[in-house]
Amino acid sequence: RKWEEIAERLREEFNINPEEAREAVEKAGGNEEEARRIVKKRL
């Protein structure tokens, strides 16, 4: 699934746990840019 690939990239890029990465992607509706913004806000 594409969402899992996005979550994996976010996890590696921001050094967050898989659960946090998945939550961000879900919140963003699968949009990678939006997920990235969500993760950055949390850091």
Rank of each mutant, 00 (worst) to 15 (best):
residue 4 E to W: 02
residue 34 E to W: 05
residue 26 E to W: 05
residue 41 K to S: 10
residue 19 E to G: 15
residue 14 F to M: 15
residue 35 A to H: 00
residue 17 N to R: 09
residue 9 R to L: 13
residue 13 E to W: 02
residue 40 K to L: 09
residue 25 V to P: 00
residue 21 A to V: 05
residue 32 E to W: 06
residue 16 I to K: 00
residue 1 R to K: 15
residue 5 E to Y: 08
residue 21 A to K: 00
residue 27 K to L: 07
residue 43 L to Q: 02
residue 42 R to P: 15
residue 12 E to L: 11
residue 2 K to R: 12
residue 32 E to A: 10
residue 32 E to P: 11
residue 5 E to W: 05
residue 6 I to K: 10
residue 22 R to L: 09
residue 26 E to S: 06
residue 28 A to R: 01
residue 30 G to W: 03
residue 34 E to G: 09
residue 18 P to Q: 14
residue 10 L to F: 01
residue 15 N to W: 03
residue 30 G to Q: 06
residue 17 N to W: 01
residue 10 L to P: 00
residue 28 A to V: 06
residue 13 E to A: 05
residue 3 W to H: 07
residue 25 V to F: 04
residue 31 N to V: 11
residue 17 N to G: 12
residue 14 F to V: 03
residue 10 L to R: 00
residue 36 R to T: 11
residue 18 P to T: 03
residue 37 R to P: 01
residue 34 E to D: 08
residue 42 R to K: 09
residue 36 R to I: 09
residue 8 E to H: 07
residue 6 I to V: 09
residue 11 R to K: 06
residue 37 R to Q: 05
residue 15 N to R: 13
residue 30 G to R: 05
residue 29 G to C: 05
residue 3 W to V: 15
residue 20 E to P: 09
residue 20 E to D: 10
residue 18 P to Y: 08
residue 6 I to Y: 03
residue 9 R to V: 12
residue 23 E to L: 09
residue 37 R to S: 09
residue 35 A to S: 08
residue 37 R to A: 13
residue 15 N to K: 14
residue 37 R to D: 08
residue 3 W to D: 04
residue 19 E to Q: 10
residue 15 N to I: 09
residue 38 I to W: 14
residue 30 G to V: 02
residue 40 K to V: 13
residue 34 E to L: 05
residue 32 E to S: 06
residue 25 V to A: 12
residue 32 E to Q: 03
residue 22 R to W: 03
residue 33 E to S: 07
residue 23 E to I: 06
residue 19 E to S: 14
residue 12 E to F: 07
residue 11 R to A: 06
residue 4 E to N: 14
residue 8 E to K: 10
residue 12 E to Q: 12
residue 23 E to C: 08
residue 8 E to W: 07
residue 33 E to Q: 07
residue 39 V to M: 09
residue 19 E to A: 14
residue 32 E to G: 07
residue 42 R to G: 13
residue 9 R to Y: 03
residue 18 P to C: 06
residue 23 E to K: 08
residue 6 I to Q: 13
residue 26 E to I: 06
residue 32 E to C: 07
residue 25 V to K: 00
residue 4 E to T: 14
residue 40 K to R: 13
residue 11 R to W: 05
residue 30 G to F: 02
residue 34 E to H: 15
residue 28 A to I: 01
residue 9 R to D: 10
residue 4 E to P: 03
residue 6 I to E: 08
residue 11 R to C: 01
residue 13 E to T: 09
residue 38 I to M: 13
residue 27 K to I: 01
residue 37 R to W: 06
residue 25 V to D: 00
residue 27 K to H: 04
residue 39 V to A: 12
residue 7 A to P: 05
residue 27 K to V: 11
residue 11 R to V: 13
residue 8 E to R: 12
residue 38 I to V: 13
residue 22 R to M: 11
residue 34 E to M: 06
residue 19 E to H: 10
